[in-house]
Design a protein around this nucleic acid. Sequence first.
DNA 1: GAGTGGTCTAGACCACGAT
DNA 2: TCGTGGTCTAGACCACTCG
Lengths: 251, 251
Amino acid sequence: MSSQPGPPPLHRKLEAELRSRISTGRWRAGTSLPSEAALSSEFGVSRGTVRQALTSLRDEGLLFGGRGRRPTVRSGAKSQPLSTFLPFAEWARQENLNPGQRTLEAARREASAEACCALELPDGAFVVNILRLRLLDGEAAMLERSSFVLDVGRYLADSHAGTESIVEFLGERGIWLESAHHTVDAIAASTADAQLLGVDIGAPLLRERRTTYDSGGRPVEYSDDRYLPTLTNFSIENRVRGPVPLTGQRA
Amino acid sequence: MSSQPGPPPLHRKLEAELRSRISTGRWRAGTSLPSEAALSSEFGVSRGTVRQALTSLRDEGLLFGGRGRRPTVRSGAKSQPLSTFLPFAEWARQENLNPGQRTLEAARREASAEACCALELPDGAFVVNILRLRLLDGEAAMLERSSFVLDVGRYLADSHAGTESIVEFLGERGIWLESAHHTVDAIAASTADAQLLGVDIGAPLLRERRTTYDSGGRPVEYSDDRYLPTLTNFSIENRVRGPVPLTGQRA
DNA sequence: GAGTGGTCTAGACCACGAT
DNA sequence: TCGTGGTCTAGACCACTCG
């Protein structure tokens, strides 16, 4: 049986503390942070731990600066973490919007070809399909078509109705979702999409197709989510990395 | 004057070696890698260095597995890196497509309100606007509307015409682009979009708005890129991280 | 219980930016 | 020249998985 994840490690708590100093405005945009050595001694942790925390903040785009330069708060940094690809309800709350939902369908069905492929199931295997309309401040914002493998879906087929966060709901039952792969594109609203989201047929929708994996690396959910692009978008950071030639590696 | 980035560090070369063992099929999907300790001794580096390399591969979704489990090659792992948000031409080549382009306009203009905001310029400031149609195997695939701050744009206003990679072109002139922030949504094709991309007005397009920063953290480019969603999409990995309560941090 | 990865420490050297 | 962050090492302890 899986157990609860333990208490947050040191570097995660430090990360949270630093993040809050930025979001509360104690460290404003353009401010240089104390050096890594100074943070080490202030918090009584090693420099390695400080660097783990700073790396996360850099990945989120809150900080920039490199060798020889102190880490600096990016101007235009979001005061809310707004980290990429949070679950819908969490994301909504961080944006100060009120998440809501209506479950339109929850049933055991034959998996679609796409779902079979993503979930590594044989053709014609059964899954639990859940169709949910997600709301922001009471307005339709996203249509979520999820397929769960049976041994996970069986928890959802009935009693999930009122549940806001499926991730938490499953966590309480010993299933820990760990990672996800997302593919993002745009698609014209189908007849059904249009009716449920309240837009014209053919209107542009932002589509996210997602495969979620449990802690054992097994795919457990495949989902096709269609967002109204006027209400929602995705935010991503990256850093440019030069290519590494594969020259005579390993003698 | 900025100098060239030095030779790749050890952990990057190790990362490249491991990646190639996966992409060449030497380590197939489902295979468990040697333990971190074994990799340490095989390559004669410390465990910390091995972990730096493995972290990158995990972030790309090539590996999974955690405490107590050996790192394992994800099934369905792309043999090509297909890392998120590469420059267009590099991305195309990794997909075995032939990138092309036509520069439709390059001129010094007053910046749009959006560009001013992203580039942190005063209202009415001037920028160099470049409009490029990007092709895949000769077919229109993306429309790129970039605005560069003047001291970068001046390199581009004339002689860039044949340049495939603006990043490399600027690097040769001492300007190193370091990081970028992306916002992704969907939008209906405007009249101009439709004509240039060869689709109907109102057709759904995948839009990426990008702000690119140089190594000093200064925004140097703002771009609005519109992709044909049939030819292109974005691929993103993430890992679920529990929230960290901010309880009495720091005495 | 043995093996493994996650975390954390302490220290070192170097490349780079600022002065 | 000096301070800084990037890299790398060596070693330790613990939580977790697996047989």
